[in-house]
Simulated assay, not measured.
Amino acid sequence: MKILVVCGSGLGSSFLIEMNIKKILKEIGVTAEVDHADLGSAKGYKADILVGTRDIAVQLYDIGGEVVSLDNMIDTDSMKNKLIEAIERVKHKNKN
């Protein structure tokens, strides 16, 4: 499974979210490749899950994959819940 975190410039906020996602994945026992990129580069990635803040997430639906829209990039509880839901959707999709 591949997860791509996207922000406007592909630097600070996406890297912070990537680090939090890696902690969450370890906590829930899920193995995934996690990377971060700017919005322009995201279209070249093939990811199962795309993560971004609300302003970025609305632009990710055309790329493909499950989109996780974060209301607050430092709210790790909400991030964890949304990530678990997206992982379950990907697993369900891959079964069919």
Rank of each mutant, 00 (worst) to 15 (best):
I3H: 05
I3F: 02
L4W: 03
L4C: 03
L4H: 08
V5E: 04
V6S: 08
C7A: 07
C7K: 01
G8M: 00
G8P: 09
G8A: 11
G8K: 05
S9D: 09
S9Q: 11
S9Y: 05
S9K: 07
G10K: 02
G10M: 02
G12A: 11
S13T: 06
S13R: 05
S13I: 00
S13D: 05
F15Y: 11
F15C: 12
L16E: 02
I17D: 00
I17R: 01
M19I: 07
M19Y: 03
M19K: 14
N20D: 15
N20I: 04
N20W: 03
I21Q: 00
I21P: 01
K22E: 04
K22G: 11
K22Q: 06
K23H: 15
I24V: 15
I24T: 07
L25Q: 03
L25R: 13
K26T: 00
E27R: 12
E27I: 08
I28Q: 08
I28W: 07
I28V: 14
I28D: 08
G29A: 12
G29R: 12
V30C: 15
V30T: 13
T31Y: 10
E33F: 10
E33H: 05
E33P: 06
E33Y: 04
V34D: 10
D35V: 05
H36V: 04
A37L: 03
A37D: 09
D38N: 07
D38S: 01
D38Q: 01
L39T: 01
L39E: 01
G40Q: 06
G40C: 11
S41M: 14
S41H: 10
S41Q: 15
A42R: 10
A42W: 04
G44H: 11
G44V: 03
G44L: 13
Y45R: 11
Y45S: 09
Y45G: 12
Y45F: 15
Y45A: 09
Y45E: 14
K46T: 12
K46I: 12
A47H: 01
A47R: 04
D48W: 11
I49Q: 10
I49F: 05
I49P: 11
L50Q: 04
L50S: 08
V51M: 06
G52R: 14
R54M: 05
R54C: 13
R54I: 14
D55K: 14
D55E: 13
I56Y: 07
I56F: 01
I56C: 03
A57T: 15
A57I: 06
Q59C: 05
Q59E: 14
L60A: 05
L60Q: 02
L60E: 13
L60M: 14
D62P: 07
D62Q: 12
I63V: 15
I63T: 13
I63W: 12
G64D: 11
G64H: 08
G65W: 09
G65A: 00
E66V: 14
E66D: 13
E66G: 09
E66W: 10
V67D: 06
V67H: 13
V68L: 07
V68F: 07
S69R: 15
